[in-house]
Design a protein around this nucleic acid. Sequence first.
DNA 1: ACCGTAGGAGAACGCTCGTTCTCACGTCAA
DNA 2: TTGACGTGAGAACGAGCGTTCTCCTACGGT
Lengths: 183, 183
Amino acid sequence: MDSATAREQALDAAESLFYGRGIQSVGMDDIRGASGVSLKRLYQLFPAKEQLVEAYLERRDVRWRGRLAEYVERQADPERRILAVFDWLEEWFGEADFRGCAWINSYGELGARSERVAGQVRAHKRAFREYLASLVAGAGLPDALTGPLFLLAEGAMVTAGITGSARPAAEAREAARSLLAVR
Amino acid sequence: MDSATAREQALDAAESLFYGRGIQSVGMDDIRGASGVSLKRLYQLFPAKEQLVEAYLERRDVRWRGRLAEYVERQADPERRILAVFDWLEEWFGEADFRGCAWINSYGELGARSERVAGQVRAHKRAFREYLASLVAGAGLPDALTGPLFLLAEGAMVTAGITGSARPAAEAREAARSLLAVR
DNA sequence: ACCGTAGGAGAACGCTCGTTCTCACGTCAA
DNA sequence: TTGACGTGAGAACGAGCGTTCTCCTACGGT
C-alpha cells in the first residue's frame, strides 16, 4: 500500500470515528483497527494525533462545502439558490450517520484547549458565511440578510444535531423565505 | 463545613472549571483544588464524576432559565418580551467568562457517549424552546414563529461561542424583529 | 544469494485521571 | 480518659491512551 492510499484510508477511518464518536473518545489504536494502517505508518503520516484531527477537519471542510455548492448550483434562480442551502441541510440532516455539525461538536470538545482546532472551526464557519454572502449578493439582496440566514442555518445544524431530527431545516427554510420576502 | 456548603462549593468549582475548560479536561483533583472539598467528601456527595457533571448541568439550567426569565419579565409589552430574549443573550455573550452555550458544548463533548448528558441537553433546549413558545403565545402571535425564533437564538449562541463576539445577538434580534413584523 | 531497508504486529513506556485506600488527627459520647 | 467515628491529605491502584520501541518478515537491488 503506498503512502497516498494509506493516508486516505487513515483519514477515512478518522472521519467516520471522530465524527461518529467524538475525537477524544477515539484512540489512535481505533484508527489503526478501522483503517488497517499500522501505528508506525500512522505516525509517519501524522506525527501526532492533533495533526490527524486537523487533517480530518480540513478534508471534511473541503468536501462539505463542495457538496453544498454542488447542490446549490443546480438551481439557476439566485433566490432559489439561497433556499437550496436549507434544502441541502435537510438532506444532510436525514443521512443515517448524521450527528450534528462536525465543527460545532469539535469546538465543544476541543475549542477551549486547542487553539489550532478552534482556528479551523472559525475558518470553516467564516467560509460558510462568506458563501452565503456570495449567494445573497448574487441575488442582488442587501448584505444585511447574510447574518440572519447564517444564524438560521447554524441554529438548524445545532438543533438537528441535538434532537436527531431533520425538521429544523424546514423551519429554517420557511423563516429564510419570510426574510427574503421582506426585502 | 457541612454537607450543604461542601456541595455548593463543589458545584461552584465544577461549574467554573467545566464551563471554562470543558468537562473532559477537568479532573476530580482540579475540582478538589478549586473547591477546597476533599476527594473523600466529593465522592460522598457525587459517587462518580458523571453525577457531578449532571448536577452541574442541572443547577446551571435552573439558574440560566431563571436569569433569562427575570430579565424578560421586566418588560411589560408582550412583543418587547420576545425581543428582550435577544437583549439578554447580548448581555450574556458580553460577559468576561462567556464561552458559548454550556449545553451545546457539553453535547459536542459527551453527547455521543453519555446518554444521560445528551438527555439533559435535549431537556434544556426543549425547556428554552417552550419558554419562547409561551412568549409567542403571550403576544398573541402564531405558534409557527417559535421555531424560527428558537433557531435564531441557537445560531446566535453557537456563533457567539465560536467567534467570541456578542454581535450575533444583535443580528438575531433584528432578524426576529423582521419576523415579528411580518405577522 | 545477500544485505539493507521498510513495514507490520504488538509490546512497552510514561502520563493522566477516576476511584479507592491508608494513616493520622480531631471530635464527641460515655 | 478512651474509643469509635468522620474527615482531610495525599498515596496508591488500575485503566486508558498517545507515542515509541522491538523484533520479525518481506522484498528490491546488486
